[in-house]
Structure formats: structure tokens, C-alpha cells
């Protein structure tokens, strides 16, 4: 029939017009910036550098191995190695980046730097309000602007961060066990005072991986429960240590988070210890 198309169309319009006042799920407008949609956990924007502890400069996990610089497809990372060394999370002296710049006007958020980093030092941020009136300097982030605490990482990617912490704790425990065994062997052999095989570090506390994981995850969940003001200036709570010795009062959700098996990136060959110089 001629004209039934237009009737059909008008009926639909009327239905939608009425529906948009009644049905709650149809009111999709979000009053940005007062209201914000929650970002999915996997969301990524530009990279940031993770640091442990309070001091961003001391705690940076990056060891300036320059793998990300080499692998970055648009070549937006610039790293200068330091002359001296400082202890990393297992207490081994490592080089640190004297300069670490990312030009986010070039970066294309592909997260290949995250994938290739063997030290869990670079991760993807979710901040997107990065507009600036300085076209060149404002979009070139140096290592201070890139540094974010591990707590912040837990806040934006809780599951992933817990897995990373578990992996790091495990590795640390392994290194410590090895050092302990070596020290014991040395002690037994020479019957001399135990050799200081394990270098003294402010963060080296024996933490078995089994204990460390739930505790970390619990803390992650705790941080994540804080108001989701992802864009507010990050004020990490002063927590000493790596975050593997937090108080553990577990709610069911926390338990769930803690039990989530480590899946992400599991299949990828992590070049552990490859370029440790």
C-alpha cells in the first residue's frame, strides 16, 4: 500500500519519543564532565612508568634497557641511561633512566611497549584529558610526568596489577631463596660468617608468593573502591614497601579478585633477565 512506510516510520518515531521520557535505560546522556562513564578495566590511552614506594625517582621500576624504545612502532620514546646504578625490586643494582621522554603527540597507544617490557615498568594509563595549549612541550612528557605509583596502577587496572604484583613477588622470593641457599652453602663450606649474598635493600622483605598474592589483591581492591576520580591528581597513600605487606581484611569481592588466576600475558615469553645489565 502506498504510504504505509511513512505510517510505520511515524509510529516508530512516536514510540521512541514517548519511550525516551519513560524508560530509564533510554536516557543515555551523561552530563560530562560532572558525570563520567566508568572506563573498562582494559582501557588504554598513553603509557606511564610504574614506581614502587613513595619516592617516584627512587622507586621507578624501569632499568633503561631501551627495549621499548627499540620496539615502539612510531618511535615516540626517548631514553638516556644513567651513569650510576641503584637497587631494583629484588635488590640487584640496576641502571635507571636518566631521561625518559614520551611524545604523546606521536604515540598511538598500541601498548607494544607494555608487552615487550620484561620489568613490568611501563603500563598503559587511562587518563584522556590531556589537552594543553603548548603544542610541543606540553605533549612531551618526561619521566616525572610519566611516573605513577603502583597504587595508582592498582586503581586503574586492578586485576592486571595484582597479577603483576604476584609475579614480581614470586620472582623476588625466588631470587631471595637462591641468595639464601647460596649464603647457606657458602656458610657451610667455609664455616665463615654468612656472606652478604643478598644485598641490603629497603624493600627486601621475605614474602612468600602464596601470602603475598591475596594481600596485594586485597589492597588493590581497597584502592579501587576509592571514589573513581581517575583524573584527579594522583595522591598515592604513603605505603612503605612494595605493597606486598598490607593489612588484609577480605570482603567477598576482594577474595574473588585475589583468586582470579593469572592469565593476562601469561602466554607471552617474558624475556626475564635478558637485558639486565
Amino acid at each position: 500500500m502506498l504510504g504505509d512506510g511513512i505510517l510505520k516510520g511515524l509510529a516508530e518515531t512516536a514510540k521512541n519519543f514517548a519511550g525516551s521520557f519513560v524508560s530509564k535505560e533510554r536516557m543515555t546522556t551523561v552530563e560530562y564532565p560532572e558525570e563520567r562513564l566508568p572506563l573498562p578495566e582494559a582501557a588504554r590511552n598513553f603509557p606511564f612508568l610504574v614506581y614502587d614506594g613513595d619516592d617516584w625517582e627512587k622507586g621507578l621500576r624501569c632499568v633503561a634497557c631501551q627495549i621499548c624504545e627499540k620496539e615502539c612502532p612510531p618511535k615516540c620514546i626517548y631514553i638516556e641511561k644513567s651513569k650510576d646504578k641503584k637497587p631494583d625490586y629484588v635488590g640487584k643494582p640496576q641502571i635507571y633512566p636518566a631521561k625518559f621522554d614520551i611524545d604523546i603527540s606521536v604515540c598511538m597507544s598500541c601498548q607494544i611497549c607494555v608487552e615487550v617490557c620484561p620489568f613490568e615498568a611501563i603500563k598503559m594509563n587511562t587518563e584522556f584529558e590531556l589537552a594543553t595549549d603548548d603544542r610541543f612541550g606540553g605533549l612531551l612528557l618526561d619521566r616525572k610526568e610519566l611516573a605513577r605509583s603502583n597504587e595508582y596502577y592498582h586503581q586503574i587496572h586492578p586485576t592486571e596489577a595484582s597479577e603483576v604484583d604476584a609475579r614480581l613477588a614470586e620472582e623476588k622470593a625466588k631470587v631471595e631463596a637462591k641468595a639464601k641457599a647460596a649464603a647457606e652453602a657458602a656458610a657451610a663450606k667455609a664455616a665463615a660468617p654468612p656472606a652478604a649474598a643478598a644485598p641490603a635493600t629497603p624493600i627486601a622483605k621475605p614474602a612468600a608468593p602464596v601470602e603475598a598474592r591475596p594481600a596485594t589483591a586485597a589492597k588493590a581492591a581497597e584502592v579501587a573502591k576509592a571514589p573513581a576520580a581517575a583524573t584527579a591528581p594522583v595522591a598515592p597513600k604513603p605505603v612503605p614497601g612494595t605493597g606486598s605487606d598490607g593489612a588484609a581484611s577480605m570482603t567477598p569481592e576482594d577474595k574473588k579478585a585475589a583468586e582470579t588466576p593469572a592469565k593476562t600475558n601469561e602466554g607471552e615469553p617474558k624475556a626475564q633477565g635478558e637485558p639486565k645489565e
Binding site: 573498562p40 582501557a43 601498548q111 598503559m124
Partner: peptide, 15 residues
Amino acid sequence: LDLFESLTGSRMMCN
């Protein structure tokens, strides 16, 4: 696209 974002991290540039 929301599904893509929650799995891959990006809506269109999934990589």
C-alpha cells in the same frame, strides 16, 4: 565497540 574496548582496550584501534 564497547565489547571491543573491554577486551582489547581500544574501541577501534584494537591491535
